[in-house]
Nucleic acid binder design. Structure first.
Lengths: 310, 310
DNA sequence: CTGAAAGCGCTTACAG
DNA sequence: CTGAAAGCGCTTACAG
């Protein structure tokens, strides 16, 4: 056996005990064994929890997880211009990403399976929660407690990144209508991002209304936490003077005693992977399948009847 | 121009306006344009924040992000057996993952650049925080407030996944020694995972000591939040009866008023990417570079002098 | 059933 | 400077 042959055999053996080169097999099979996930960021509890649900499910399917966190406007333009996921993953999961019509069209052009998570996309498989219905039930809870002046706080979404909260607001308004309560624009507030005093200002505006709200419904638990901190700062007892209700059931919510609408984030992730597999395996007859996961009101100690009038 | 030619030209044009097939270029260049990240899970604030720091830095470097979340023992065995990252990424970033010697050896066998994040690895580039020094300063703060009985709560890490908290405990003990305070094993407590009443039990054990602690130092902010909830449940005022101090500076900590040791999670991620780039570009002479990022004590309202004895 | 050959879509070294 | 050819490491269809 020549020196060269020996070297080659050894190299081959070493190679064999390890993973194969996926690039080579991808090239011939057309499959990458990877799934790409497009998200507006990685920091919220909801997105982390969704990703956590996906990861083991993907692993079980023998798929790897490629993450595109597209956060600022520049990255966004670049992502939709270059479409880096193309031929670089077997499917693209779009999570909580409010797409413009042009962006939606670009994705459709990709010619690869698309699955929408935590958002509805006509004509494409989607997994989400009925935000409107959930918010409807949330506001009903506040109404049942006796509240009549209920504010709704939403994140000011300057960049239009995250999925719209329109549906939650719609559910809230529907509950008010149901109860025969007139809608008051002053009670709907957009709160700017984490930094700065946006929340304090919002609370200030609400408290200086002629008839201030006795309950505050926030679009997300994250927002509710900031609200609770601002109320504490202002020495306003919860639920003594105002009730607070969130949306998500963040891990911290149980610890904080926050009443909220629970949505199954990890389950959304798992279900999205299941849908993806069925699309990839072509096992499923209906590529437009929409799966709506249930939500649940979790009443805790931040909600109570309104204070009695003096 | 024949029908076939036309079709081929159109196809080519369509292809050109889109991304190139990375598998093909990887095959010839040996570069994948991807970086793999190995993490024990995706759910803690710390890991999400680190990942959030990495994502834009990788993007700027034209690198994609492949995530291996290896959570249970089965997955773990499988990961180190199959080594799926091999030839599937240009570098592997190992984040907060306590490796056995055998696992460490397997990774060294990979023959690809390794970067260790939030942990120290001899002979390999690493970015981390001086946990011992930080905890030392934390406990000094409690000592300076007048506390003499200080408990240390750590996460019971049954699976040995996350990086060890040994260093934080060591710093705590060093501060006690400095102050001439005798070490008491009863004041060191391991608290089992999220589910169940582990925290309540731990608090119970501490409160039933002959001389209970007046301050509680937790290994992470997450643990501190659970502790605060348990103390609230037990009607024990913080910091009236006991002081609480965490470690991390979780986003929620500012909102909760939790005194803590801040570690720059996102900055760890960014720095890790910088290190990775310098290793990949071979631009950096020292592949064993260790970067230690600073921590900071953030005093807030969960710490105060101990109650006066009656 | 086994084994050699063709080809996936790129990059790069080389001939013209 | 331009363009055709070789080859990266696999899979698969096909010849033997």
């Amino acid at each position: 056996m020549s020196e060269t042959t020996r070297a080659r055999v050894e190299a081959a053996a070493r190679e064999l005990s390890f993973a194969i080169t996926r690039s080579a097999s991808s090239l011939v099979t057309g499959r990458t064994g990877r799934v790409a996930v497009l998200m507006p960021h990685l920091e919220s509890w909801f997105l982390s929890a969704t990703l956590s649900g996906m990861a083991p499910a993907l692993r079980d399917a023998g798929l790897e997880l490629l993450v595109y966190s597209v956060t600022d406007v520049q990255e966004r333009a670049d992502f939709f211009d270059r479409l880096p996921a193309r031929r670089n993953a077997d499917a693209l999961l779009v999570v909580s990403f409010a797409l413009s019509p042009a962006e939606r069209a670009r994705l459709d052009d990709l010619g690869m399976p698309l699955v929408f998570v935590s958002q509805h996309a006509p004509g494409r498989p989607s997994v989400y929660v009925d935000d409107e219905e959930a918010a409807l039930r949330g506001t009903r809870h506040l109404l049942n407690l006796g509240h009549r002046r209920i504010a709704f706080l939403q994140t000011a979404d300057e960049t239009g990144f995250a999925w719209s909260s329109k549906n939650r607001l719609a559910g809230h308004l529907r509950a008010l209508t149901e109860a025969g309560i007139e809608h008051d624009d002053d009670l709907i507030m957009s709160v700017p991002g984490w930094k700065g005093s946006g929340m304090a200002a919002a609370v200030g505006r609400l408290l200086s209304l002629q008839t201030p709200p006795t309950a505050l419904f926030t679009e997300t638990d994250d927002l509710a936490f900031r609200l609770l901190a601002a109320l504490r700062e202002a020495n306003i007892p919860v639920p003594g003077r105002v009730s607070v209700m969130g949306f998500d059931d963040h891990v911290m919510s149980a610890l904080m005693g926050l009443t909220t609408l629970a949505q199954p984030a990890a389950e959304l992730g798992r279900t999205a992977v299941r849908l993806t597999r069925s699309v990839l395996d072509d096992t499923d007859g209906d590529p437009q399948r929409h799966i709506i996961l249930p939500t649940e009101l979790v009443p805790r100690r931040t909600t109570a009847p309104p204070p009695v009038e003096r």
